[in-house]
């Protein structure tokens, strides 16, 4: 067990040695300097006399108590106190100014309130008057509205009448135009009537003439009838003659056909003669 403990200590020693070797070149010069001055200082520390250290410790504690109770560090320093005083003066002045401003503001507010009250009373009076006027005006307005309505109705009626009159005017215009046209037509008709009258007169005259002529014609017709009877008799005679002539003509036609055939042979001979003559 002791051997194991020694091994364990050896391991720890190796680790510590490794750390020391690593940091030794950096830290050990500082350590040697520290050792130097500490050895010098420790010469002045008394040995085997603990009372000195106890008394020093008590003195430091009492001193610490006194100092830190007397000056706990929460009192403002002198220069800051002056700053505070200046700030306080400024604040006082600001407060005074604020008070003055407030007082003036109150005065102004009072005046304003008085004026507002006066204005309100005036406004109320005016409002009452205005209300009365408004009522009157309302009544007037109502009457005016009624009148307006009446006028509107009248206007509507008038408009309707106007529309009707316009329509009537248009109709009148149309009628006038038609009348004018009719007048023109009447004039034309009159002219035509006159003309017709004239023509009628002429026709009457002509009719009279024609009547005369008719009479003459009747007479002539009678004569003609007589003549026609004569002519009919003649025609019957002529028809008989024509029948006879037709028979003769048929005979002649037959003769003519025969002659034509004979004439064709003669023509061919004549042409042959002509060609021989030319050659």
């Amino acid at each position: 067990m002791i051997i194991l403990a020694v091994d364990f200590i050896q391991i720890i020693a190796d680790i510590v040695a490794a750390i020391l070797n690593f940091l030794n070149p950096i830290v050990s010069p500082m350590g040697t300097f520290m050792v130097y001055w500490m050895e010098y200082v420790l010469q002045f520390f008394p040995q085997n006399d603990l009372i000195v250290y106890v008394s020093i410790a008590i003195a430091i504690v009492i001193l610490g108590l006194i100092v830190n109770i007397a000056w706990p560090g929460n009192k403002r320093p002198g220069f800051l106190k002056k700053v505070d005083e200046v700030e306080e003066k400024i604040e006082r002045k600001v407060e005074e100014l604020d008070e003055k401003v407030e007082a003036k503001a109150k005065e102004v507010e009072d005046k304003v309130e008085e004026k507002i009250a006066e204005i309100e009373t005036k406004v109320k009076k005016k409002a009452k008057k205005a209300q009365k006027k408004a009522k009157d005006l309302e009544k007037k307005a109502e009457t005016l509205e009624e009148r307006v309505e009446e006028i509107d109705e009248k206007i509507k009626k008038k408009k309707k009448e106007k529309i009707k009159t316009e329509e009537l005017e248009e109709k009148l215009d149309e009628l006038e135009e038609k009348a004018e046209k009719l007048e023109d037509l009447a004039e034309e008709l009159e002219e035509e009537a006159e003309e017709l009258e004239e023509e009628a007169e002429e026709l009457e005259e002509e009719a009279e003439e024609l009547e005369e002529k008719a009479e003459e014609m009747e007479e002539e017709a009678e004569e003609m009838e007589e003549e026609t009877e004569e002519l009919e008799e003649e025609t019957e005679e002529l028809e008989e003659e024509t029948e006879e002539l037709e028979e003769e003509t048929e005979e002649l036609e037959e003769k003519a056909e025969k002659l034509e055939k004979e004439a064709d042979t003669d023509d061919v001979e004549k042409e042959l003669d002509k060609t021989t003559d030319k050659e």
């Binding site: 040995q47 603990l50 250290y53 410790a57 008590i58 430091i60 001193l63 610490g64 108590l65 560090g73």
Partner: peptide
């Protein structure tokens, strides 16, 4: 002896140190 001597001094200065206001 040395532990007691320096322990007393260190404890006394620690009292002064930690009872003082910050950054004083």
């Amino acid at each position: 002896f040395w532990i007691s001597a320096f322990g007393l001094l260190i404890s006394a200065t620690a009292f002064f140190n930690y009872s003082s206001p910050k950054q004083s």
